[in-house]
Computed example of a mutant assay.
Amino acid sequence: MPRPTPPDERVVARRRAVGEQIRRVRRAHHLSQRDVCERTGIDIASYSRIEQGHASPLLDTLIRIADAIGVPLADLVR
């Protein structure tokens, strides 16, 4: 079975930017990663990978994170 092609650097850079934005918004709302994880049901390791830009979350996951923080989805992907 062939291995999937890794994303190009542009995609990786944007994924990291989204993770950084999620972290900024979370911190601005005085929430810890654990707070968000408890509200979303996402395990801490997976959530941390999202904020670091090492994981590509599904849209449903981004919606759950936005709801847990209490912001519109657009605030996370600006």
Rank of each mutant, 00 (worst) to 15 (best):
L31S: 06
L59E: 10
R23S: 04
D43S: 06
D60S: 15
L76D: 09
M1R: 10
E20P: 05
I63L: 14
Q21A: 02
Q52F: 04
L73H: 06
V77R: 08
S32E: 08
I69A: 04
E9Q: 10
A17Q: 08
D43T: 11
H30M: 12
G19T: 01
I42G: 10
A13I: 01
P2D: 02
G41L: 11
R16Q: 00
Y47W: 05
G41T: 12
V25N: 00
V77L: 09
R34N: 12
L62T: 10
D43Q: 09
Q21H: 03
Q33E: 10
D8W: 00
Q52T: 14
S48E: 13
I69Y: 05
I50M: 01
V18L: 09
R24M: 05
R24F: 07
V36F: 01
T40W: 12
A17I: 04
Q52V: 13
L31E: 02
I69V: 15
D75N: 07
T40Q: 07
R15N: 08
S48K: 12
I65N: 07
Q52M: 13
I69D: 00
V77G: 02
V77D: 02
R14I: 07
R10Q: 11
T5H: 12
I65Q: 03
R10P: 06
T40Y: 08
R15T: 13
C37W: 11
H30Q: 13
I44H: 12
R49G: 06
P72V: 00
Q52W: 00
I63E: 13
P4S: 03
L59H: 13
A13N: 07
A13V: 09
R3L: 15
V11S: 11
M1D: 11
L31Y: 05
V11W: 07
P57A: 00
E20R: 09
E51V: 13
R26Q: 01
G70D: 06
R64K: 15
E51H: 09
T40V: 00
R10I: 13
S32Y: 09
R23D: 03
A55V: 12
D67Q: 07
I44V: 15
V12N: 01
R3G: 00
L59R: 14
Q21C: 06
S48P: 03
H54F: 09
R3N: 13
D43A: 06
A28T: 08
L58I: 15
R24S: 01
E9M: 11
V71K: 04
H29D: 12
P6N: 03
D43I: 02
D67F: 05
C37H: 08
S32N: 07
R34P: 02
L31N: 05
G41I: 11
H54S: 10
C37R: 03
E9I: 05
V18G: 06
T5E: 14
S56C: 06
L59M: 13
R39E: 09
V18C: 06
V71L: 07
A55N: 14
P72H: 01
L31G: 04
H29S: 13
D60Y: 14
A13R: 10
T5P: 12
S46L: 14
V36I: 14
R10V: 13
L76F: 00
H54W: 08
I50H: 04
L76I: 02
P2W: 12
A66K: 07
R27L: 13
D8Y: 02
L62A: 10
R15F: 06
S48Y: 07
V77M: 04
A55F: 11
S32R: 04
I69C: 01
E9Y: 00
P4E: 08
R10W: 08
V11T: 15
A55W: 03
